[in-house]
Nucleic acid binder design. Structure first.
Length: 735
DNA sequence: CGTGCCAGAGTTTTT
DNA sequence: CTCTGGCACG
């Protein structure tokens, strides 16, 4: 029971309360992950509960991974237990039961870009005015509906018979039909359909209810209706449900999170035990007090006040800059000043309200040679080149994926334009086959221009080969092969521009992501990999070991902590954003966001604003954020708010500018060009001793110029494609 | 079919 | 400002 000794009395109370509903109100930095992991360890080690009977759900892969690691450390060894995100838990349910809803088990998962592409084709098909009805418009309504478990018909019934409703209904229904036809689910469907399975099939529900005798939910304040339903249905039988959350950190209401889920948990589950974790282990007393002085202005929150045994620490620093460049300059200068030898750059974070703010900070940091990393914004997996290569890999996995094929059919340029694609699509539809199937017909490709037919035939060949060989190849080999043999990489190299170079760098970075996965799981299959990245977010990629200042939105920073935190842009209209002004609950959510931002800081917190800000090419005078007025003035260092610090800035900027260099946007590119492995030339013959990265050592038993038969040491006999499979000669003493 | 130019829009986004 | 998408032209 030694691990319980590290818990404070309240935390221990929560960890030891295993039977019946439990609500843990865990303030920022109050050690909720420790509490939860110890609770799981306690269930397993002391209560004799099998890990099989425990379900823990989180929102992010990162949180799930961290919990899994810490549980593993406590109970010793691997954890064969469902510690998953909501989405991957639902995915697992659906992989087993999707047939019940008319999907095959290997259904595809559409990410937002796929959704947009799908919706775009629908807008076109329905002949709608694409000025008024954008794909994004429909998708946001559809997402809202799905979060409430509302079908197209129910939407129509709820909104009357006007034209707009009708159009939305048509688009929604068409979208659903398209996804169904493509055997695909979007992110919302994963949750929704898992619930539908439970509603439809009592046996399936019972199966999971019986299995998950103990359920835990992290970040409960951010659950939406459908997630709430999912959890509630599962918990109904054993009623052992433990939710952890902080209503003050609910910042995703605009995405359907329902704060009432946590506020009314006690009403939903009878005899709930409530434990409040109010001791903060993260921040200094001043930071905590400042954050509290802001959040307490909100109405309707559960009363609680964090406390700490830490010292008061430094006061909060506020700097009113002249404009956004001065603001960024100040922040960079402060980082330089505070970055002593025993500090790392990764201990600093700049957390802003909107991604658009990142640019000025990037410039200012570059000028001072401060390494930085921007998270979010253009999501890594949304970048064109990454999407392209993923589409190729999706095609390798499933050539019938028409959406993926249309994306890359002319990427790299093969002389196949919109007209040709339309013709081919029409042909495929008439023939009742997939687009790829149509392209395998040489009569069809032969009818195209010489350039197009040659390009398509080569692409089709490559995809077919890798499709057949995918079981025998590592994901990274497929990746390399596709990149090289489709001509994608060459097309980029030929462009010879800095932009293309950046894209190549991104592709190499993506390869290192694949390597990372393969390191964890040498048997990683293509479908496994595709599944993982489909549900992956950029913050998951955040590497704490990289020595760089972190830039991201306050939203993305939830759950993270940094010794030094800068919150720039404290201006009305920016933070809180101008769209939230008209509604009280909107403003309250912004205030919670401010609270989240402030409580990320462990040692020092610095707020800044600019008197003048250029946004979208328009320069305006600003007014200081009302959140600054909420702040307890005693906790702020130096001058009072509303006053300029003229002399100090003049002095510091002299010193500041002297060490700055002109901004070079490409200094950031740590472009390491890796040689893409080309396959070996010398053909293998019978009797050769070979090594395969996945299957190990073996002997060639038969070989011609196409197929090599290898008997591996594990007894398996594999047929491998010559020149394609990552076979190398076995040399004694060397793997 | 590919490129280049202009008009229009531009919170936050765990999966 | 800066990215995106649509359209016209070569």
């Amino acid at each position: 029971m030694d691990y319980l000794d590290n818990l404070n009395p309240r935390q221990r109370e929560a960890a030891l309360h295993t039977e019946g509903p439990l609500l843990i109100l865990a303030g920022a930095g109050s050690g909720k992950t420790s509490t939860m992991t110890c609770r799981i360890a306690y269930l397993i080690r002391e209560k004799g509960v099998s890990p099989y009977n425990i379900l823990a759900v989180t929102f992010t892969n990162k949180a799930a991974g961290e919990m899994r690691d810490r549980v593993a450390a406590l109970i010793g060894g691997g954890v064969n237990m469902w510690i998953l995100t909501f989405h991957s838990a639902c995915l697992r349910v659906l992989r087993k039961h999707a047939e019940l809803l008319g999907y095959s088990r290997d259904f595809a998962v559409y990410d937002p870009a796929d959704q947009k592409a799908a919706m775009k084709s629908i807008v076109k098909e329905l002949n709608l005015d694409d000025k008024r009805y954008t794909p994004a418009y429909f998708l946001s309504i559809i997402s809202d509906c799905k979060e409430k478990n509302m079908s197209p018909e129910e939407y129509r019934a709820a909104h009357g018979e006007d034209l707009k409703t009708k159009i939305i209904y048509n688009a929604y229904a068409a979208y659903e039909a398209l996804l169904k036809k493509n055997n695909a689910m979007d992110f919302d469907d994963l949750l929704l359909n898992a619930v539908k399975v439970f509603q439809k099939d009592e046996a399936a529900l019972l199966e999971y209810q019986n299995r998950f005798r103990y359920i835990m939910v992290d970040e409960y304040q951010d659950t939406n209706f459908i997630q709430y339903t999912f959890v509630k249905m599962l918990a109904q039988r054993h009623n052992n449900i433990c939710v952890v959350g902080d209503d003050d950190q609910c910042i995703y209401q605009w995405r359907g999170a329902d704060i009432r889920n946590i506020l009314e948990f006690e009403k939903d589950f009878k005899n709930t035990k409530v434990v409040k974790l109010e001791q903060n282990y993260r921040s200094t007393a001043n930071i905590l007090a400042a954050a509290h002085s802001v959040i307490e202005k909100n109405k309707g929150r559960k009363e609680k006040k964090l406390w700490t045994s830490k010292e008061a620490g430094n006061k909060i620093v506020y700097y009113r800059a002249e404009d956004e460049r001065d603001e960024a300059r100040y922040v960079a200068q402060e980082i330089d000043r505070l970055k002593t030898r025993e500090r790392r750059y990764s201990e600093f974070a700049i957390l802003y309200r909107t991604n658009a703010q990142s640019r000025t900070f990037e410039e200012a940091l570059s000028r001072r040679d401060i390494p930085y990393r921007v998270l979010g914004g253009l999501r890594y997996y949304d970048r064109k080149e990454v999407k392209d290569i993923i589409s190729y890999m999706r095609l390798v996995q499933n050539p019938a994926d028409d959406l993926a094929l249309t994306r890359i059919i002319n990427e790299p340029k093969r002389g196949v334009g919109a007209k040709t694609i339309e013709k081919l699509q029409a042909l495929a539809r008439v023939r009742g086959e997939s687009l790829f199937q149509t392209l395998t017909d040489e009569e069809v490709t032969g009818s195209l221009s010489a350039k197009a037919s040659a390009g398509i035939e080569q692409m089709v060949r490559v995809i077919q080969e890798y499709n057949q060989e995918q079981e025998n190849l590592r994901v990274s080999d497929i990746y390399d092969g596709v990149l090289v043999r489709t001509g994608y990489l060459k097309a980029l190299e030929d462009q010879n521009t800095l932009e293309a170079e950046g894209r190549i760098e991104n592709l190499m970075e993506f390869k290192s992501v694949i390597y990372d996965y393969e390191k964890d799981d040498p048997q990683l299959s293509l479908p496994d990999f595709m599944e993982r990245i489909a549900l992956m977010a950029e913050v998951d990629n955040h590497d704490e070991n990289e020595n760089a200042v972190v830039l991201m939105t306050m939203h993305s920073a939830k759950g993270l902590e940094f010794p030094f935190v800068f919150l720039p842009g404290m201006e009305d209209g920016l933070f809180p954003g101008w769209r939230t002004f008209d509604r009280e609950d909107g403003l309250e959510e912004e205030r919670r966001l401010c609270y989240v931002g402030m409580t990320r800081a462990k040692e020092r917190l610095c707020l800044t604003s600019a008197q003048m800000r250029t946004l979208y090419g328009k320069t305006d005078f600003t007014r200081e954020s009302q959140f600054l007025r909420d702040l307890d003035k005693h906790l702020i260092d130096g001058d009072a708010i509303y006053e300029k610090k003229k002399d100090a800035r003049a002095a510091s900027s002299m010193d500041g500018y002297s060490r700055e260099k002109p901004f070079d946007p490409f200094q950031q590119l740590k472009y390491v060009k890796q040689q893409v492995k080309k396959t070996a030339a010398e053909p293998f013959k019978e009797g050769d001793q070979v090594v395969h990265p996945k299957f190990g050592r073996g002997t060639v038993v038969r070989a011609d110029d196409k197929i090599i038969h290898v008997a591996f040491l594990d007894g398996s006999l594999k047929k491998l494609a010559a020149g394609l499979a990552p076979l190398s000669r076995y040399i004694k003493g060397k793997e």
